[in-house]
Every structure is written in C-alpha cells, then in structure tokens.
Design a protein around this nucleic acid. Structure first.
Length: 127
RNA sequence: GGAGUGAGCCAGACAACCGCGCAGCGCCUCACCGCGUGGCGAGGAAAGUCCGGGCUCCACAGGGCACGGUGCCAGGUAACGCCUGGGCGGCGCGAGCCGACGGAAAGUGCAACAGAGAGCAGACCGCCGAAGCGGGGCAACCCGCUGGCAAGGGUGAAAGGGUGCGGUAAGAGCGCACCGCGCGGGUGGCAACACGCCGCGGCAUGGCAAACCCCACCGGGAGCAAGACCAAAUAGGGAGGCAUUGGCGCGGCCCGCGUCGCCUCCGGGUAGGUCGCUAGAGCCGUCCGGUGACGGGCGGCGCAGAGGAAUGGUUGUCGCGUCGGCGGGUUUCCGCCGGCGAACAGAACCCGGCUUAUCGGCCCACUCCGCCU
C-alpha cells in the first residue's frame, strides 16, 4: 500500500531514455531558478527527475541540497501530478539561493505542471 | 592576570511527525514488485587530484641514449616529493619557527637601473707630490707636469676579507697580531658535519644551477567509464533445413549459375542487467622495544556501500556565541527579556601523504612579562 506522500522508485525517472524523451518533446516551463520539462504519459504515476549540470551547479553540496528540495516538494504534491513526468534543470543562481526561496519557485512550477491538459499524448511537440 | 609557542580533540544535543538507501528476518509470491519489523547509514578535510602504493587490463630478451622526477645525512615505511631524529644556515629575549639545503678551480651563459668601474676590475669626488722633468728662490722650500694611491666619500643586490698597530709622500696583506678563509693532517661522529687541535698558504674559487649543464638515485602505459560475466530489439555475418513445377537476372529455349523468402542453431555486439564493491598496510585497548617516526605481542570490535546517484524535510525544547535593554555588582562577573548567528563542505574501487577551505569551542605542555606571598 503506497501512501500518498511516499517517494518510491516508481516515482523516479531512472533511465536515460526517459530524460531524452523529456528533453526532445517535453513541454517547457521556466521559473526563477529552474526550468521544467513535462511529458504527459497517461496511465503512469507522477515521476520526477533532476538533471543538475555540474557546469551550472559546481559544488556537490549544492546539487544535493537542490535535489532534496525538489524531492521534498514533489513528494508532498505528487497526487496532483499523476501521468506527468517532470525533469528539472537548475539555473546557476540556484546554487546561492536559500531553501525557502527555492521551494517557492518549485511550488509555482508544480502548480503550472498540474494545470496542463491530459488529452495531449506524449511527443506531440516534437517534429 | 596579560602576551605568546607547540601538540591533540570536538564539529551542537534530544524529541515528535512525514520520507530515503542497504543487507537480515517475517508476510505476499513461481519470480519480480510490494508491505511490516528492529539494525546500520558522510568528513576532518569525504574537497583539489599534487605525489606514493594496492588492484585490473595491455606491453615487455638484455644494455645504452633520450625524456621526466627527486636532491644535506641517517632512519621509518608497501611506497613516496611523506614522517622522525640529526647537521648546517636564517629569524625570535624565549618556548620555538622557517629553508628545492648536491656541484660554480668541466664547459656555455645571465646580471635591469645606478655607477668612474661588474669579472683579464675601477680614478668621478678625493688623498699624495717621495722619484723624474721644468720653473722660481742664496737656502729651507714653493709651483706645475709626468705620475703614484683602493684608506675615505658616493652608486649598487653585490665594489676582490675584517679590526688594530707598524709602515709610507700618500697608500696597500706591504709587514705583524688577533679574527675569518683555503689546503693537508689529527680527533669525535654510521654519516651530514664539528673542533679554543697540528702544520702550510697572505688570501688563491664574487653571485645566479626553480639558466643550460654535471653528478647520484628513481621511473613501462592506461585507469573501476579498469576489468569479468549474462544478454534483448533492430541491421548485418556463418551453418543447416524447407519452399522441391516459385519470382527476377545471364540465354531464342533447356540445363546450369547468381539472387530474393521462411524456420532453427552458432559467434561478435548495442540498450539493459550482474559481479568488481568494501576485512583493510582496518579500528579500539593494553604491554614490550625505540630519543622518535615506527615495529612487535596479546585481547576485543565488525564500522556507509549509492548508481539520473540514499544519509533528507518541518517543528519544538535545551545548550553555545554575539548585539541591545533592565536589575544586582562595578577590573573581571551574575540573572532576566528580545533580536541575530552557528562554518568549510557530500563518500562513488580502496589505502598512505601533501595542499587548500573552515563559525566556534575544549584539554594538555611550555615560554616571556607583570603582581602577590
């Protein structure tokens, strides 16, 4: 029985193919510190992936911190996000930003992602 | 009490709720997935990737050259560019600290600016006017020139030992004494090196080798994305079988040859997966040897193993630092209230070092100064 606030493996993006699909055909949303790519895949649970480039976030400690903020925000709101695969990228300014400000930006993006219509199949935007 | 030196240690604590990773046990189950339970789950630098090793694969007769690294001596170590002890030089009143610290009489080279002169030294200011020549004067002597001088000034990072006395026209290791230096010997030390030891030498090799270089020693290459194994889909390769009167091509036709289809198997190999992957030059305690680094004996412990990458989020209480206010106290200090702050930083095959970053706190040893008895 998966509780509504858990973060099991099935809620994560693990394969390179998932990330490639998001980068090629995902709907793009821009926030203050993040960019969000959304792929609609009916029948799947909400899934999260963090693509934090070493180039934009040079210190491992910052990458870990940002990833944990992403996970925590996603974990608490995943019920609204069913059938959506989300890939976050961070802008360089995120490294120097405290957690509450990051969290607010993430929540705004999640709200927009939840509002996307479900009837558009994945991959529509490519080609 | 103040100022300082060295060596260690810690890296806020506890609780609640919601989560994450791993192996164990239990439930479910063919298995995967999932669920429950108690356990474990970042650092002193996990960092930079600058050295050294283990491990893995590749290469490899032996020797020399080239290239790179190291560079006082002796130890320690698996090894090192690390560590310990010692020597020498420098800094500090001191505890202590710092040093790429082999060779400059093998050769080549470099030295801006300043300065008269910078590597077969050098007369700018200055000192001298003994000697020689000329002039003056009865003479003592005076003037000028040829010249002599490295003592003084000045320049410089550096000017060819220092101080004193003698000496001289003025000077000069020119002579002497002491100090320094070089060479040979002696003594002490494993050695680097040292010596209020002996003899010789008036002093000869100025600096730079993180300039080329010489000497001594060391060095195969790539790295866990190493490497080993399992292995789809798609395309292509090989073998066998079937289709046996099939289509197409070479021919006017037949035979024949080539090519196209389906099935099975084989080998290479991509995605993906498994292993490597945490028991190791391990950690803690104790005893012994050693000045020490360290080595040895005995006993105990089981101590992260992820993989788009776990070790987190929120809240509360206490503790710490700091600022402001109030009250005792007034050198130091104590209590209460409120605000702010709590660093540097995240394992990725594993060890030994080095270097760099870091809010603050604790303990020990020692030095100097002040005060009291």
């Amino acid at each position: 029985m998966a509780g509504p606030l858990r973060f099991p493996r099935s809620a994560r993006l693990l394969a390179k193919a998932d990330f490639d699909r998001a980068f090629q055909g995902g709907t793009r949303l821009g926030g203050q510190f993040f960019r969000l790519l959304v792929v609609i895949e009916p029948g799947t649970p909400a899934r999260l992936g963090a693509a934090l480039a070493k180039r934009s976030i040079p210190h491992a400690v910052d990458r870990n911190r940002i990833r944990r903020q992403l996970r925590e925000a996603f974990r608490q709101r995943q019920a609204e996000l069913a059938a959506r695969s989300l890939v976050f990228t961070a802008k360089p300014e995120a490294a120097a930003t405290p957690n509450p400000a990051l969290r607010a930006d993430i929540d705004r993006l999640l709200t927009r992602a939840a509002a996307l219509p479900l009837d558009r199949p994945a991959g529509t935007m490519s080609r």
